[in-house]
């Protein structure tokens, strides 16, 4: 039997679970952005007619799950596991969504890296024959995140250029080994790295070292190089973070050039006043399950290395003077 582990951090899925159905949903600001045409469902009201953004977020997540199931021609009853994560305290969006779906639930928290953590775990479970079909989903909401991590929405704040705007949206994918669709062939689970960044206004900078570390580890583990991929996608490093990421990767003697795209830096247009770009679980999830999967289905991309990054901190740890750690997970998706 061929080895299922490569090097220090990478796993190989010999039965390569497929994304048999996936769906993305987002708010109006994301719809007006650069990736608007790759998002399946756009809603006009970011609050979804709900009294609070928290309730709206879990509606977005539930909707994304239902749409993904419908696209795979499956129902909740066909799913043996639901893996979900989000940014809100005690991952309430995922938990309440799991309550409504009624699928056995594994809640995860990897901050904005949750989608790749979920896809990686889901692929492990499917590849290991522990489940035939697994539903993976994440969500984030601008208003819900602002009030939890930063300030009230209407407060008189002049945002810094390094600030990032949390994407309002959700994305879900059904993983299964029985059907066709983009395959998940490898995953590299990342280490938590802390380079001493303290400002929550510099989240891209806090996450860039972890992204560079996971990428370089992946290349070393698998013996691949940037040339082996059509696209190397990072989740939400945004303008400042991606600059640092490219620099750090260069120090390890890998040149990314035009192979690299960061969803955070790409998702909004400059005139949308979003600081350095987008962030949040939905940011990387829309990039992977919206942009990458659609481009693959159209035959424009063959092999993609998708890295999602997360900033690991809480408002309490931050106020107590702790620095912000970063994490990054990667999966290889092949058409």
């Amino acid at each position: 039997m061929e080895a299922k582990r490569l090097g220090l951090q990478t796993v190989v899925f010999r039965q390569a679970p497929c994304i048999v159905g996936c769906s993305t949903i987002a708010g109006p600001k994301e719809g007006e952005g650069n990736l608007g045409s790759y998002i399946d469902t756009l809603v006009d009201d970011p609050l979804m007619g709900q009294p609070t953004p928290e309730k709206a977020e879990r509606m977005l997540l539930y909707q994304a799950c239902q749409d993904a199931l419908a696209k795979a021609n499956l129902t909740e009853d066909d799913m043996q596991l639901f893996i979900g994560g989000d940014l809100l305290n005690q991952i309430i969006s995922s938990s309440y969504c799991a309550r409504d779906l009624g699928i056995p639930f594994l809640g995860i928290y990897g901050a904005c890296s949750s989608i790749v953590e979920g896809l990686g775990l889901g692929a492990l479970i499917v590849d290991g024959d522990y489940a035939d079909s697994v539903l993976v989903a994440t969500s984030s909401h601008y208003q819900a995140s602002e009030r939890q991590f930063r300030y009230p929405i209407e407060l008189n704040i002049q945002h810094k250029k390094s600030n990032q705007w949390t994407v309002t949206g959700a994305a879900a994918a059904v993983l299964s080994k029985t059907r066709t669709g983009p395959k998940i062939t490898m995953a590299t689970f990342g280490r938590v790295l802390d380079y001493g960044i303290r400002s929550p206004n510099d989240m891209g900078a806090a996450m860039a070292p972890a992204a560079a570390d996971t990428l370089c580890r992946h290349f070393q583990d698998t013996g691949t190089s940037p040339g082996d991929y059509d696209l190397i996608l990072t989740g939400d490093l945004a303008a400042v973070g991606q600059k640092l990421f490219v620099q750090l990767v260069k120090e390890s003697d890998y040149t990314l050039d035009s192979k690299h795209m960061d969803v955070g830096a790409a998702i909004y247009k400059p005139e949308q006043r979003s600081g350095a770009g987008g962030s949040g679980c939905a940011c990387s999830a829309i990039g992977i399950l919206g942009y990458v999967v659609k481009e693959m289905l159209e035959g424009k991309l063959e092999r993609v290395l998708a890295i999602a990054t997360g900033a690991l901190f809480s408002p309490v740890s931050n106020q107590q003077g702790d620095s912000i750690a970063g994490i990054a997970h990667a999966v290889v998706i092949e058409a």
């Binding site: 810094k160 250029k161 390094s162 960044i197 510099d202 900078a205 070292p209 303008a239 400042v240 620099q247």
Partner: peptide, 12 residues
Amino acid sequence: YQQMVKEATPQP
């Protein structure tokens, strides 16, 4: 790294 971040961050 702090120095790198400082150089990469656009000044207001």
